[in-house]
Design a protein around this nucleic acid. Structure first.
Length: 356
DNA sequence: TCTGGGGTCCTAGGACCC
DNA sequence: TCTGGGGTCCTAGGACCC
């Protein structure tokens, strides 16, 4: 069992099972065992999470809600309540931190654990999994491996309520015949390009020479894909995450046309964004807007200021100017505003104090 | 099947400086 | 008149993830 050899590198990936749905089911236990879908209600809403019963009808995350209703009319549809999910997520992460020193939170429903310090990492992971279920009532799946990639794929291999331990070699054997898209990092575009080169399994990708992969995907992405396929991963464990940008965007129920219709929407989004940034006293130098047209093509415009801002009128002045210069004439389905460079704020403050 | 919202990272090209 | 090489900052687009 190759894991015992290297006690320094043992990681677990905890993946909550159908997290948002299960949070909702605790509030509405009478729906247990039935198809339940968390999705917005607008004409362009998509499914956030579907219960395993609903997945049998072909309803998954990102399925258009309209289509989900057709696929399973008797499913219960629940609007998302992200405040609740965030609160429950904090509970889960607190349980993890109570058992393991080093926890890397990835999203509301996922985290990596560094089990390198444990004499018996597998037993430790068992205890963590039981504790999550006992203390929150929410189920999860666990994967254990010598790096984050193996742990992640392992946690996905036997959902829900899974517990899968794999060495890199065992992962290569188990998933060699699987499609490249099962490893995180190979998305639909890359999978399609691989397919066009005649590569449809991880074993084939892992056995492809680097020179060939470099020809197809460039000197960085190419060899990186080969390493992914062989379950080689040396990404470091990061316990702290620094937010670099924040944005607000909205897809309109029906397309908007012209500055007259778009400006009030941009104003509203900018107000929301600035109020969040202001509460956290976070500032950024780069202001950006995003416009998605009816044909789904997307353009962005950005401008970087000499010093970081978060005041509504500062951000608004730039965002509005960017929108007016773009002056979208085609129908617009999505509008967004963004402030980036939030992580530079400390450096900016230092420079200011030097000038004094 | 007409496709959310919030993020990250990478790449390519241009401007500008030395 | 035709020309370097490196480095940084910035913009725009794209792929990807949850």
């Amino acid at each position: 069992m190759g894991l015992a050899g290297d006690a320094r590198r043992v990681y677990a990936h905890i993946d909550m099972d159908a997290f948002y749905v299960n949070v909702e089911l605790q509030r509405r236990p009478e729906l247990r065992g039935r198809p339940v879908v968390v999705a917005g209600s607008g004409p362009r809403a998509v499914v956030t999470t579907a219960s395993y019963e609903a997945r049998r009808f072909g309803i998954f995350s990102a399925t258009p809600a309209e289509r989900a209703r057709r696929l399973c009319p008797r499913a219960t549809f629940i609007p998302p309540d992200f405040d609740a999910y965030r609160a429950r997520s904090r509970e889960v992460m607190d349980v993890l931190r109570a058992h393991v020193e080093r926890v890397e939170v990835v999203g509301l429903d996922e985290a990596y654990l560094d089990l390198g310090g444990f004499e018996r990492p597998r037993a430790a992971a068992r205890r963590v999994k039981s504790a999550v279920i006992d203390e929150t009532g929410l189920g999860c799946s666990v994967g254990i491996g010598p790096n984050k990639l193996v742990a992640k794929v392992a946690s996905d291999a036997d959902k829900p309520d899974g517990f899968v331990v794999l060495s890199a070699e065992a992962a290569r054997e188990r998933f060699g015949g699987s499609r490249p898209g099962i490893v995180p990092g190979v998305g639909p575009k890359t999978a399609e390009r691989l397919e066009r080169q005649g590569i449809s399994t991880l074993a084939e990708l892992g056995a492809t020479p680097d020179e060939r992969l470099t020809e197809w995907f460039g000197p960085r992405l190419g060899p990186y894909l080969g390493r992914l396929a062989r379950f080689e991963d040396d990404r470091p464990f990061e316990t702290a995450c620094v937010t670099k940008s924040e944005s607000r965007e909205t897809t309109f129920d029906s397309d908007l046309r012209g500055l007259g219709a778009l400006e009030p929407q941009l104003r509203r989004l900018t107000e929301q964004l600035c109020s969040t940034l202001g509460r956290g006293e976070r500032r950024g130098r780069t202001i950006g807007i995003k416009v998605r047209y009816a044909d789904f093509s997307t353009v962005t415009r950005a401008r970087t200021l000499p010093s970081p801002v978060n005041e509504l009128e500062s951000v608004w002045r730039v965002a509005l100017d960017l929108l007016r210069r773009l002056d979208p004439t085609h129908p617009v389905r999505l509008l967004g505003v963004r402030v980036a460079g939030l992580d530079e704020e400390v450096a900016g403050a230092d420079q200011l104090s030097l000038l004094r």
